[in-house]
């Protein structure tokens, strides 16, 4: 019985959301508000259960890790935004978080993107064969794409032509990525249609 009710609710909400394809309507609005409200509430509980309690309260109370009071203080002063006279205190937390993100981003990008990308582009060219052609294409593609992202000179003459070739490489990569992702999305659509056809309509006809 509970499964039947669940399937009816899921099917109804799926159709409500799909009704957006026609135009905005009260059914879509209902599903949208329900979805947004439920997820906002869910994340509140999730934050409590998976962040505040296990990572702050439990270590302080059970393990006496009082050092955690410092990040807790930064969290609490975010709430000072409710009081205009001391709302400037919340900027400390924001500055701290943004600073950490930007700082870690520097070494993170070097270690995670720049060096591995460079390493993967330095490829051997071993004679006249398809592997060599493939490797040469990768090296040439990376080189021209890097030129496209050169900002300190106007893109004209040789630089402009090279940048255009780089843009062509970028667009070819985007085309491939687009097709790949569309295929993945179609499989999601198939999953939803399968649910409506077999789990929902199939259930009505007792199949």
């Amino acid at each position: 019985m509970a499964t039947t009710i669940g399937i009816w609710i899921a099917a109804g909400l799926t159709l409500f959301i799909y009704s957006f394809l026609y135009k905005d309507n009260p059914f879509y609005k209902f599903a949208e508000h329900l979805y947004v409200g439920i997820t906002a509430g869910y994340w509140l509980i999730y934050t409590w259960a998976y962040t505040i309690q296990p990572m702050l309260l439990d270590p302080i109370i059970k393990n006496k890790e009082f050092i955690l009071i410092i990040p807790a203080f930064f969290g609490v002063i975010m709430l000072t935004r409710w009081f205009p006279s001391i709302s400037w205190l919340s900027r400390w937390s924001i500055a701290f978080t943004v600073g950490i993100g930007a700082g870690l981003g520097v070494t993170g990008s070097i270690q995670g993107f720049i060096l591995p990308q460079l390493k993967s582009t330095i490829l051997p060219l071993t004679g006249l064969n398809f592997a060599t052609f493939n490797n040469l294409l990768i090296i040439f593609g990376v080189f021209t794409t890097l030129v496209y992202f050169y900002f300190s000179r106007e893109h004209k003459g040789l630089l402009g032509h090279t940048a255009k070739v780089g843009m062509t490489f970028i667009m070819i990569a985007f085309g491939a990525s687009f097709g790949y992702t569309v295929m993945a999305r179609i499989s999601l659509l198939i999953g939803r249609i399968y649910f409506l056809m077999f789990d929902w309509i199939g259930m009505m006809f007792g199949k």
């Binding site: 330095i122 060219l125 071993t126 090296i139 890097l146 050169y150």
Partner: peptide, 25 residues
């Protein structure tokens, strides 16, 4: 400064290309 870094990367890439031909090639 970022653009100079890109030039350095391109130079390393070209050195790698030459070494890739002369060494493994």
């Amino acid at each position: 400064a970022e653009d100079v870094m890109k030039v350095i990367i391109i130079i390393i890439l070209l050195i790698g290309l030459i070494l890739g031909i002369l060494g493994p090639g």
